[in-house]
Computed example of a mutant assay.
Amino acid sequence: MSMRCLATLAGLAATGCSILNPSAIDTRLEIELSGSEQLAWPIPEEGEIAQSFVETRNSPADPSGLAGLELQVSGGTGLTVSATDFDANGKGPIIDVPESGSIHVHVRLRQDGVVAEGRVSWALARDAIWTLRVSRSPYVWGMDGTPENPKCYYPWCRVIKRFVIEESARNYPAEALWLEVELHPWEGPLE
């Protein structure tokens, strides 16, 4: 075996590479913001063409968007995340979480005081990547039901929760604060 190959293998082993050691994979929570986009509103009936659109404001730098965001994560980990912890693409912290128990997230949106607030909790699973996505919009993609009574539609969705934003802080009447929780197992397809 060449020295170059040995050096590469040693480097991979030192970093706990999952290819060489799958048991080294950690269960984690990735926090992200949805991108800003135009959404049809009101939602057109099936077969109808959208007549109007709203622009979502999900930038962590936008005072009328998510600049006042605060998340408190507890349950095996304790962490407070604010809008300044997200990059320009909406990628936030990645947190190691336990493989069992549950996790709790308390969300607040501030604009001259708290204008939206709520909590979500879910049971943790082994060898999983959890994604917590935050958005400010009239609805979220992949939602079943209605915006007032959302339900998960796709198989990896675990929680969709809507929180009312105070009327004076909304950019348009139907705007709400949303938290979505997805589960992505490390191995195999979801059932």
Rank of each mutant, 00 (worst) to 15 (best):
W141S: 14
I103Q: 07
P185I: 12
G113Y: 10
L124N: 01
E117S: 14
A83D: 02
W41I: 04
K161L: 01
G78F: 08
P98W: 07
S18L: 08
F86N: 12
E175H: 02
M1F: 02
I31T: 10
C152S: 08
L33W: 12
D87V: 01
A174P: 05
K91H: 06
H106R: 07
V97C: 04
E99Q: 15
M3V: 01
T80R: 13
A14D: 14
E187L: 06
P138E: 03
N149F: 01
N58V: 04
C152H: 00
A123P: 01
N58L: 03
H184N: 15
W130V: 00
R57L: 11
S121H: 01
T77G: 11
L183E: 12
K151W: 04
R119Q: 14
T77V: 15
S2H: 07
R162T: 00
K151Q: 09
N89Q: 09
L39A: 07
G145T: 11
S34H: 08
L132Q: 07
T84R: 05
L29A: 05
H184I: 06
T27E: 09
S36K: 13
G118A: 10
P93K: 09
L179W: 08
Q72K: 13
E166M: 11
Y172T: 02
S59V: 05
F86Y: 09
E30T: 11
G92M: 10
P93G: 05
A176C: 12
K151V: 14
L9N: 01
P185R: 07
G142P: 11
A14S: 14
A61K: 08
S23R: 06
W41T: 02
D26W: 03
I25C: 05
L109P: 00
R108H: 03
F163P: 10
G47H: 10
I31F: 11
Y172Q: 11
R162I: 03
V164K: 01
E175T: 04
M143D: 11
E46T: 11
I43E: 14
L177N: 08
G92Q: 04
P138T: 03
V181P: 04
P42C: 02
E167A: 15
A128D: 07
W156T: 13
A13S: 06
